[in-house]
Design a protein around this nucleic acid. Structure first.
Length: 323
DNA sequence: CCGTTTTCCACCCTTCGAAT
DNA sequence: ATTCGAAGGGTGGAAAACGG
């Protein structure tokens, strides 16, 4: 990460916000950190980030086995117990490491918006924005965007952030740059154009299945953007039909669907997938590479015209069936 | 009316198939 | 194996459309 890049700045802002808060907590109470049973903590109700898997998770579990959980997680009190705001991965790894309790800071009296800030910003500390999955980026951008464009409704949080930034003499973070449209301001923080921010934020309108598909690359980004304009029922329908037909959504199809927004029924959905695909001209020949030794042993003396026939006979024998 | 969102278009880069 | 061109995916900027 470059020393003065916008990403670095966002990272630093988030860090400031959190460390300052933690410091306040400690100041208020020396024992502000409680040991809480992991079972009592439920994941954040709208957690947009995927948990670590594979090697990364294994490393974390190993580290916790050796050193314990060094940084407390952040939770808030609920009727049944606690809700995780920051530390989903630590709690998950601690559980796998066999721990029953985890150090936690309990935050009370937070607004819904504030809790969301904790959820988003802490993840940005662990991972740089560019490493996030598309749906995760969408969630982050949404949070940043709302912070900038809906200041009236979010006075509490804006005050907190402005205070922190004012104290550390930070340059613009969108709010002070009113000449920029809000999406451009957000984009500036992450080295994205305003339109890219808009498109990314569209992913927030996708049903979970489509979000997952975008994240693992099964659904291309632009197709996802088109589909995001459909309502939930329509998206579910398309998702279901695509699976039934065993087909991927083509760019043209996604565009077509978007235009039919609001009037897609079962039939329309099926029609989209059945519309004649521009079938590429059937290939008359294919070219393959075979080992020169094999060629010399079996085919070198055979005329080119006969090779295909020989191959066909050989393959029929090999696979035991006619094509 | 003004700010935001969406659309459209030009452009760049990568991928893929066909030709050599 | 290499080269070439077409197509597709993605981006950014400007204009149009939308909404409070």
């Amino acid at each position: 990460m470059k020393a003065n890049s916008p990403k670095r700045k966002v990272f630093q802002d988030a860090l400031d916000l959190l460390t300052e808060d933690m410091a306040v907590d400690k100041a208020v109470s020396e024992n502000g950190i409680l040991q809480i049973a992991i079972d009592k903590i439920t994941p954040f109700h709208d957690h947009p980030f995927r948990l670590y898997e594979g090697e990364r998770l294994a490393d974390m579990v190993q580290s916790i086995r050796e050193h314990g959980v060094l940084n407390p997680v952040i939770v808030r009190r609920t009727k049944k117990g606690f809700e995780m705001l920051a530390g989903h991965n630590r709690a998950n790894a601690a559980k796998l490491a066999g721990l029953k309790e985890i150090p936690a800071i309990v935050k009370d009296k937070l607004t819904e918006e504030e809790t969301y800030v904790y959820v988003i910003e802490t993840n940005l500390i662990q991972r740089s924005f560019t490493d996030l999955l598309p749906s995760e980026k969408a969630a982050v951008l949404k949070e940043r965007h709302e912070k900038i464009s809906c200041q009236g409704r979010r006075n509490d949080i804006v005050k907190e952030i402005v205070a922190l930034e004012g104290a550390s003499q930070k340059s613009t973070c969108g709010h002070s740059d009113h000449k920029l449209r809000s999406r451009d301001s957000v984009g500036k923080e992450y080295e994205l154009s305003g339109s890219s921010v808009s498109r990314l934020m569209r992913l927030n309108h996708l049903i979970p299945e489509f979000k997952e598909q975008v994240d693992d690359g099964r659904l291309p980004f632009m197709e996802a953007v088109h589909l995001s304009y459909l309502n939930e029922e329509e998206q579910n329908l398309i998702c279901q039909v695509a699976e039934q037909e065993g087909k991927k959504i083509r760019p043209k199809q996604a565009e077509q669907l978007r235009k039919q927004n609001g009037k897609i029924d079962q039939e329309a959905a099926e029609n989209v997938f059945r519309c004649p695909e521009k079938s590429r001209a059937e290939k008359k020949t294919v070219k393959i590479w075979i080992d020169a030794g094999v060629y010399n042993a079996y085919l070198a003396d055979v005329g080119e015209a006969d090779v295909s026939e020989i191959m066909e006979k050989a393959l029929k024998m090999y696979f035991g069936k006619a094509v």
